[in-house]
Design a protein around this nucleic acid. Sequence first.
DNA 1: GAGTGGTCTAGACCACGTT
DNA 2: ACGTGGTCTAGACCACTCA
Lengths: 243, 243
Amino acid sequence: MPTTAFAAQRDLALHHQVREDLLLKLRSGEWAPGAEIPPEPALCAHYGVSRGTLRRALGDLVNEGYLERFPGRGTFVRPPKLETGLAGSFGRFTVVGPSFAQASRLVFCRRSRASASIAAVLKVKPGAPIWHLERVRLADGRPAALQSSYLPRRLYPGLDRQPLASRFLLDIMAEEYGVALLRAVEFVDPTVADGYAARHLGIKPGTPLFRVERTTYTSGERVAEYRLSVLRGDIFRYRNEFR
Amino acid sequence: MPTTAFAAQRDLALHHQVREDLLLKLRSGEWAPGAEIPPEPALCAHYGVSRGTLRRALGDLVNEGYLERFPGRGTFVRPPKLETGLAGSFGRFTVVGPSFAQASRLVFCRRSRASASIAAVLKVKPGAPIWHLERVRLADGRPAALQSSYLPRRLYPGLDRQPLASRFLLDIMAEEYGVALLRAVEFVDPTVADGYAARHLGIKPGTPLFRVERTTYTSGERVAEYRLSVLRGDIFRYRNEFR
DNA sequence: GAGTGGTCTAGACCACGTT
DNA sequence: ACGTGGTCTAGACCACTCA
């Protein structure tokens, strides 16, 4: 390990400096993808740190996907899996576009009964009482999305008397009804506007849209809301980052 | 801390069991979003573990976004940011659908010169030599995507003599040319098939597609490839998870 | 059997925020 | 001054892999 010397700075966590130096060796190609890196004792000696500190640095790099470790074998530089087969690709995403305003246009809010398919996603019995509400969401003052929400009525008595057009629905669910929103899963498809969506969004039928199907969960993996949205594709994009 | 007893299992990492038990308290709502959880000494005593082990459990939960810690103040349950304004929403995503096969149909691979716009994304001078290649990607033996790739020719001499129709392009770039692929950024839009895409994908014009624009980076933030794809929307979905 | 990483402990010192 | 979390050390035992 007789590379360049390692001089620790004061006032900066040791494990962080070690992490940075290790990352440099990866980024620079000194340690190529797939290669094995020196074992812990060697690195401890090189950096002059205890095993705990070194392992904190290595552990961070493992969590971030840069390294891979195998008990009994060693530590290896993880080749980035940028593709090699699309499905299963994963990473972080961000939505790019304007923010939704709190205010929305309420199309309707009505009592209804769960059909077989809605019952399945809401995890209630078919025919169970539900709310079905439809809103046009605004961003920068213009229609940006059309959203259909289905909620188990049992959790939200008197929902139709809430200020649905002027507050975020999720805020009403959480603050007025005390429903803890813990997790949400979305599926995104491409689609095109039909006449109904086009009219509400002020666009031509056939315009490309995102179709977003979101299920929001509360405690005990119960469903707090099922929401079907279409988003204007000319306003929103998804940004995904791989490493 | 006289809640229910905590009995550690053998043959399962202690820090993992502690993590699971803590997570249970969050999921069940015993510790509400925003609330402060007991300090380390109390939790150490409760679980009968050393501080190192407890901190490993807490650290994992912090990394996963469940907890937030502030030196001198305490540890708090992080309120989930599910929406409250779409843009800026973030989370983890997965692509759902079949994997791309290594084999693809090569439409063309030709020498070209960078236009102003391509030069900008590839970070080369306008007019610089580039490769432009187009392929139909297969999944389960059927056309699933049409991809146009732009690469700085300087990095890939003789690319047109490589087995472009039978290997992953990224593998050729990495293994045959030693280009380290470190990071990639994608932007996803909805679109519809034009005649050209429809013909190559065996679908009708007007069918909804994902349009994916991907830039892959090598060391020094240089661009290794710029790729424009359209993916069949009836085969692929994006799955996003928020917490 | 020697070397690898995985786990766990006990104890120490520090910077920070609240009181 | 006190309690919080952040850092770091030294040493121990384990399961696993490979020669």
